[in-house]
């Protein structure tokens, strides 16, 4: 997959955020942006036919390990954000009886 495709994934997420009227859909769009970002970085750090990054001195043509290390952290952070956001969705549904942005934000108190 080329980096261009991953950028398209990010743009799809952005489009979803700017149009979706449902809170859960918005949460998923954030996740889509994040997945696109992870794919983008892994693609950029990838090496066709490269081998695993182990400091033994025997392997050559190793893949850059830093993108992978960073992206694991990003995945962890992303799952935290998703979990917290979905928890808030549940709470919002209990309070407002709806998870549409319009009905949730339109109401005072």
């Amino acid at each position: 997959m080329s980096p261009i495709l991953t950028i398209i994934v990010i743009l799809v997420g952005l489009y979803g955020l700017a149009t979706s009227k449902n809170i859960i859909k918005s949460v998923f769009c954030v996740t889509i942006i994040e997945s696109g970002l992870i794919l983008l970085f892994l693609n950029l750090g990838n090496l066709e036919g490269g081998s695993i990054p182990i400091l033994s001195g025997l392997v050559e043509n190793i893949v850059d390990p830093i993108p992978q290390a960073l992206m694991i952290t990003t995945i962890v952070i992303g799952s935290t954000i998703t979990a917290l956001a979905l928890m808030l969705c549940i709470k919002i549904f209990h309070h407002f009886g709806s998870i549409e942005w319009k009905e949730v934000l339109g109401r005072e108190e």
């Binding site: 809170i23 956001a85 969705c89 919002i92 407002f96 949730v104 934000l105 108190e109």
Partner: peptide, 12 residues
């Protein structure tokens, strides 16, 4: 209710 609403808006 409003605090959850502000929370999710802020978070996302």
């Amino acid at each position: 209710g409003p605090s959850f609403q502000a929370g999710i808006y802020y978070l996302l």
